[in-house]
């Protein structure tokens, strides 16, 4: 797989993850900024780096499972590795403009 093809595949994986919502906030985890990185290797192995809104969130395992299922369902993806990280910790500033507007979330200086 070429680099360009891998990048395209990563974009498709990211799109697929938009079906997974954070249940508490009620918006998809990609636009909430909970997916820090999606990378696909030349052999089709996807590596997803993600977080949750708060450490110890009871939905953590379910979110990871949902991400795995959605990524594995993308044609061309051979394997999925998920890394959960809290560095950096998530803040509302990481949301997309659309998510902020939809949820009525304000920006602030001290995030």
């Amino acid at each position: 797989m070429t680099e360009a093809a891998a990048a395209t595949l990563a974009e498709r994986v990211e799109d697929a993850l938009r079906l997974v919502i954070d249940p508490e906030i009620g918006y998809n985890i990609v636009d909430l900024g909970l997916v820090y990185d999606v990378a696909v290797e030349a052999d089709g192995a996807a590596r997803i780096t993600m977080t949750t809104t708060t450490r110890g969130c009871p939905a953590t395992d379910m979110l990871r499972a949902g991400v795995r299922i959605r990524a594995q369902g993308v044609a061309g993806v051979r394997d999925v590795a998920i890394e959960l990280t809290y560095d950096p910790p998530w803040t509302p500033r990481m949301m997309s403009a659309e998510a902020k507007a939809f949820l009525g979330v304000a920006d602030a200086e001290d995030d």
């Binding site: 508490e24 009871p58 499972a65 949902g66």
Partner: peptide
């Protein structure tokens, strides 16, 4: 509401469209 969502819809997250907790 939150625990009921986790119990009901958490297991199908990624498999099907799910409501929000607020729903």
């Amino acid at each position: 509401a939150f625990l009921t969502w986790l119990e009901s819809y958490g297991p199908v997250l990624g498999k099907a469209a799910t409501p929000r907790v607020q729903d």
